[in-house]
Design a protein around this nucleic acid. Sequence first.
DNA 1: GCCAACGTTGGC
DNA 2: GCCAACGTTGGC
Length: 158
Amino acid sequence: MPYWLLKTEPSTFSIGDLASSPRRTTRWDGVRNYQARNFIRDAIAVGDEAFLYHSSCEPAGITGIVRVVRAAYPDPTAFDQHDDHYDAASKPDQPRWYAFDVQLARRFRHMVTLDALRAHAATDLAGLMILRTGNRLSITPVDTAHWRFILALSSSTR
DNA sequence: GCCAACGTTGGC
DNA sequence: GCCAACGTTGGC
């Protein structure tokens, strides 16, 4: 089962917001990058797990785990003229953008900060996409070995 | 198809 | 608020 990392700015939508959402579930929408879109449309499946990463905040880092509970479907925000993510080029009969649903699975007692991840950038976490400089992709795959290592970090750091 | 300009992301 | 990185756009 593939693993993923989803970025979110907590000032827009945080893990706390997810925790207080109905059924601790939310629609992951508004993705407007083709590479990320392809992950959603072609690879992300029900049952997949993803780290929830808080970006553009202090400190940035991984705050918990979500589980995919609904696979790709056309992103409704692309059809809504009043939504910030409206895209006239995406039509219901030929959608350009996709959303999926995630449910909160686990909140880390202690966030695994970007600094903590970086401490292993040259060794156990070499190649982790979030550590690549200039990486702006909001959805990235995570190797199983990286997933397990970060899980271990989450229970050992404080 | 190239590439400069532009806009956005995200760490600091 | 700054700025590096980089995806997208649009002129040619």
